[in-house]
Simulated assay, not measured.
Amino acid sequence: MKKSEIRFSIALDDQKVPEAISWTATDAGPDIHFAKAINVSIWDRDQDGTMKIDLWTKDMPVDAMKYFIVDTIGSMAETILTATNDTVMATKMRELCAELSKHIDQEQKTQK
């Protein structure tokens, strides 16, 4: 059986706030990749529930964080469609993404 690993490295400041996030993966080559935010969800088979890790660096822009969340929901819509073929749930999630994107765009227009 082939195994693959993903490793995250988080650099924290004195107050334990993330300053830098990097990651490597055996299937992504030898390079170190950098991120401003991560969102990891794991379904724990023993607890029969979701365990989550949400981290973002202190220099992550607020508007980028909002788009990150919208992109994550959109990706989850594709996952639910592929995993379960539930088109209703996927469609509702995509509609929510469109609505949230409009909200963010409107916010940005009013801030300018």
Rank of each mutant, 00 (worst) to 15 (best):
M1K: 13
K2T: 10
K3G: 07
I6E: 02
I6S: 04
R7A: 09
F8E: 11
I10R: 03
L12R: 02
D13S: 02
D13V: 13
D14R: 06
Q15L: 13
K16D: 14
K16Q: 14
K16N: 12
P18K: 05
E19A: 04
E19Y: 04
A20T: 09
A20R: 12
I21E: 00
S22I: 08
T24Y: 06
T24N: 00
D27Q: 06
D27G: 01
D27R: 08
A28E: 03
G29P: 02
G29M: 05
P30R: 01
I32D: 01
H33L: 05
H33F: 03
H33Y: 07
F34M: 11
A35H: 08
A35W: 06
A35Y: 05
A35P: 03
A35V: 08
K36G: 01
A37L: 00
I38D: 11
N39S: 11
V40P: 07
V40E: 11
V40I: 14
S41A: 15
S41G: 10
I42T: 11
D44N: 15
R45V: 13
D46S: 13
D46Y: 12
Q47F: 14
K52P: 05
K52F: 12
L55H: 07
W56D: 01
T57L: 02
D59G: 03
D59K: 02
M60F: 13
M60L: 12
P61A: 11
V62P: 04
D63H: 13
M65R: 07
K66M: 06
K66W: 09
K66V: 06
Y67I: 12
F68W: 04
I69D: 10
D71G: 08
D71R: 01
D71L: 00
D71C: 02
G74M: 03
M76L: 14
M76A: 12
A77R: 01
A77T: 08
A77M: 02
E78G: 13
E78C: 11
E78W: 00
E78F: 09
T79Q: 10
T79I: 13
I80F: 09
I80C: 01
L81W: 00
A83T: 00
T84K: 05
N85I: 01
D86P: 02
D86C: 06
D86V: 04
V88L: 12
M89A: 08
M89R: 01
M89T: 06
T91K: 02
K92R: 10
K92T: 00
M93R: 04
R94Y: 05
L96F: 06
L96D: 09
C97V: 04
A98I: 00
L100M: 12
L100D: 00
L100H: 03
S101E: 07
K102S: 06
K102N: 09
K102L: 03
D105C: 02
E107C: 05
Q108D: 02
K112S: 12
